[in-house]
């Protein structure tokens, strides 16, 4: 709820900024509304973005519950998508059930490995996870650059992207015609399912309890014999898996190839999504829709207005994120009312 207040406040702040720059805020709101609800295709695109945001949001949230910051969802999703995009190019002759499984396994393993590194370094060697994941983001971007441009570049197009996968590797070979001709695919259903599974896992299982106890009170959980380091590593690996599912949505579900820069800061937006829902999976469903709305709307603003560019979209996102963070302690203490000391 506080998150929603923050979201509205941030949106209001950006609208004020927009009107200072000389656009009519009512018009902006109209574009926002139209960009999501005008046609079925627009709604589908929003749901497609929402799917990715649910995955990154859950990825950040699982680490969040263990008291860790997963800033590395960006790198993990890049590695996961890379694994899926090159799986079909490494072993092109696989037949149907195995081909898809192979793509899934390779992508999830790479993503999970990219989550394992900060988890291991944090729990065993005490490396600061924010810096480690930040560096891993840069390194993942470099690795993806190498594979997309130097190894598997699709020579038929100008844009940097990999050679498209054959039909056997794609999600659509299982789910014909659920959402025809739109980007949104079966992974949206997976994402919603994952939210509920995540809820059960975190709040109603032994592992989830241990995870939360490590996050809330490390000293006590150590005292009661919770396998502290193991839980931290497992949380980060799970975060890596979840982030890698963005690849299922983007590569296996929609385009069948890895395009450089497809993830317009999805990993960082995942942080905002998880923050706004304060890590609660059902809240993530709502907040990921709001951020998908924001992302899609601000991309359309880029097309339909003069002053607002793609970078401005980033400013709006940052303003919303900042006010969501600012509102986490919402009933602000006013200077006159110092709590009794």
């Amino acid at each position: 709820m506080k998150g929603l207040l923050g979201f509205i406040f941030g949106l209001g702040l950006s609208l004020i900024l927009v009107s200072v720059l000389g656009e009519n805020p009512i018009h902006i709101l109209q574009i926002f509304y139209n960009s999501v609800f005008a046609t079925q295709y627009d709604l589908a695109t929003t749901l497609f973005t929402m799917t990715s945001l649910i995955f990154t949001g859950l990825s950040v949230a699982v680490a969040f519950h263990a008291g860790l910051f997963n800033i590395g969802a960006e790198g993990q999703l890049l590695m996961g998508s890379l694994g899926m995009a090159i799986s079909g190019l490494l072993l092109p002759n696989l037949i149907l059930p195995y081909s898809f499984l192979w793509a899934l396994v390779l992508g999830l393993c790479l993503g999970g490995f990219w989550g394992f590194i900060p988890g291991y370094l944090k729990s065993r060697w005490g490396g600061h996870e924010v810096i480690v994941t930040m560096m891993l983001n840069f390194i993942a971007a470099g690795i993806v650059n190498y594979f997309v441009i130097d190894v598997f570049q699709n020579r038929e197009v100008q844009t940097p992207e990999t050679i498209p996968l054959t039909k056997e590797f794609l999600l659509s070979s299982f789910t014909h015609g659920i959402f025809p001709r739109t980007p949104v695919n079966a992974s949206f259903l997976f994402a919603v399912l994952f939210c509920f599974l995540f809820y059960v896992l975190i709040y109603h299982t032994r592992w989830g309890f241990q995870l939360r106890s490590v996050g809330k009170n490390p000293e006590a959980s150590k005292f009661y014999g919770v396998p502290y380091q193991k839980i931290q590593i497992q949380a980060f690996v799970l975060a890596g898996f979840l982030a890698a599912f963005v690849g299922v949505n983007e590569v296996l579900g929609f385009s069948g190839r890895l395009r450089l820069g497809f993830s317009s800061d999805l990993g960082f937006l995942g942080v905002a999504v998880a923050m706004m829902a304060s890590g609660h999976p059902i809240g993530i469903l709502a907040s990921s829709f709001l951020f998908a709305f924001l992302l899609k709307g601000s991309l359309d603003l880029d097309l339909e207005t003069q002053t607002i560019t793609k970078d401005f979209a980033r400013v709006i996102q940052a303003l919303v994120l900042l006010s969501v963070i600012g509102f986490t302690q919402f009933p602000f203490k006013l200077p006159g009312f110092k709590s009794g000391k």
Binding site: A313, V315, Q317, A318, L319, L322, I325
Partner: peptide, 11 residues
């Protein structure tokens, strides 16, 4: 992190 993103967009 939010401030980093903000400045990255503002510049």
């Amino acid at each position: 992190i939010a401030m980093n993103i903000l400045i990255l967009g503002l510049c």
